Computed example of a mutant assay.
Amino acid sequence: MKMGHSVLKVKSYQFSLQIIRLVKNLQKEQKEYILSRQIMRSGTTIGVLIRETEFAQSKADFIHKMSIALKEANETLY
């Protein structure tokens, strides 16, 4: 996996992998699907948004995408 030198990109990618493992475990062991699908969505969206900031069209667009990533992180934490 080559993702440059961005610690944020690497950590968000690793976090996504942890979320995927968590969701697989919840769905397999606990037969839980509603909350696990929400955790999967919000937890993996963080990394996607951080990757999108590489192609932000402006500083405002960069800030907007990072703000949404932060909201998704807070939602996942909740």
Rank of each mutant, 00 (worst) to 15 (best):
E52Q: 13
F62S: 03
L17N: 06
A56H: 07
L70N: 10
K31I: 01
E72H: 10
I46W: 04
L8T: 14
H64Q: 14
S12T: 15
E54S: 14
S42I: 04
Q30R: 13
V10Y: 03
Y78M: 11
L35E: 10
S16N: 02
I50K: 04
L17K: 08
L70A: 13
K11M: 07
L22I: 04
Q27K: 12
I34W: 04
T53I: 05
I19F: 01
A60C: 02
R51F: 10
L35N: 14
S36M: 11
K24S: 06
G47K: 02
L8F: 06
H5Q: 01
A73Q: 00
A73I: 00
Q30V: 09
Y33L: 02
K9C: 03
A69L: 05
Y78G: 15
Q57I: 09
G43T: 04
S12Y: 03
S12M: 03
V10W: 05
I34F: 14
K59L: 13
D61P: 08
K11P: 00
I19H: 01
N25K: 12
G47I: 05
E72I: 09
F15H: 10
L26G: 09
T45A: 13
S67A: 15
E54A: 15
M66I: 15
S6C: 10
S16M: 12
Q57S: 15
L17C: 12
K11E: 15
F15T: 00
A60W: 03
H64I: 00
R37Q: 15
L35Q: 11
Q38A: 15
T53Q: 07
S67K: 14
A73P: 00
R41G: 04
I34G: 11
E29H: 09
G43W: 06
R21N: 09
V10E: 08
S16I: 05
L77W: 02
K9Y: 00
